[in-house]
Amino acid sequence: MTGESILFWVLAPLAVAASVAMLFMKKAVHSAILLAWVMITLAIFYIALEAPFLGIVQIVVYTGAVMMLFLFILMLVGVDSSDSLVEKIKGIRAVAIFTVLGFAGALTSLIARADLGREPVGLSTANQDGNVEGLAALLFGDYVWAFEVISALLITAALGAMVLAHSEKSDVARNSQRARSIARFRGKSIATAAGLPGSGVYARNNSVDLPALLPDGKPSDLSIAEVLHRRGDVQETKSYALDGLPQIDEEGKK
């Protein structure tokens, strides 16, 4: 038994088991992990079949990029959710079973006709100058036109996705961090140069809808976020004013 056949008989059952288990997993992320594993075993088979470039690219592109993007989306779904098993489109189950049986039949009849135990033909001539060089000669030599057309197609697809997913920004221009910083210092007063005051913290309350108190006991409207004002979530700030302190206005005069 050669090393290659040991590799095959260890990994092939694992790959088949993983791909079957992928279908029966309840959580989408578990299915995604199993699919990633199937892709990696396929890559190992490619490498064992003397196609190292294809094997490595399979991992980089499919496992590393495509599957990772899938996972990226699935992660937004959250850990607790599982797919709903309710049949939403009527009759989809019957159609699915019929299609699967048909596909399985076609596949089985093809595989049954396969002629095993032959020596591979043409591999050594294809890999004569090295696997990578052989592939490069085909891609950028004989099939360069097809290669370029496909790359143009992919770029078009990417641009299309960008256009479809693009959302218009709101009309209200947002000032940059720098502009806001400058405006803070050049405004009417530089009282807010270091930022707006935080909300009030008292012995009884600690909440963002409570105003901070100024040194003279007046509540500060600036200390409450504008959003809360507009939503009407703020209690009347005047009720928090402290009495008994000398009232002074902004210039400090009595």
Partner: peptide, 22 residues
């Protein structure tokens, strides 16, 4: 010494990300 050695490093790195994401 793989003929695609450097790409192999990239491939292992891309599998390593799975650890962090999962």
């Amino acid at each position: 010494d793989l003929p695609v050695g450097v790409l192999y490093v990239l491939a292992t790195a891309s599998i390593g990300v799975y650890g962090i994401v999962l």
